[in-house]
Amino acid sequence: MVELDVQTERRDCVTFVAATVRNDGRTGRRVTLRTGLDPVWPPRRQGVPAAGWSGDRVTLTVAAGRERGVGFATPAAPDEPVLTVVEAVAVAGDEECREPTPEHVVRALGDPTPPADAVPVLGTDAATTEEEPR
């Protein structure tokens, strides 16, 4: 149901872990992943660990048929199990709807459509929007 694809890259004594979680099922799933690496440097937003991170675990919701990415860094070498799926529970439909939708994007950033006044109307007032004759 849930397919985990993990890649690691070690650079300058830091291991970068990048994974995708794919949900091939028909319902959304809340997936909890655990890493055996210690310490974990989770991604941070404004200095705080990103949503879903807690210690060596991260929880994320993957909608049906979709995939999501997750990643972290650690100074440890990638010997331990890098990431394993601890739990993948089905979630109710409305919880999936928290994924951003086109409507969310327009609401947050504003509709880019040019205003009607900016669009020249052919025939009626085209003369006022055209350049003056030279």
Binding site: P102, E103, P112, T113, V119
Partner: peptide, 14 residues
């Protein structure tokens, strides 16, 4: 064209 841009609904891009 501006008219085309006005008729386009950006929500459909996804």
């Amino acid at each position: 064209s501006l008219a085309g841009a006005r008729a386009a609904n950006v929500r459909g891009l996804v």
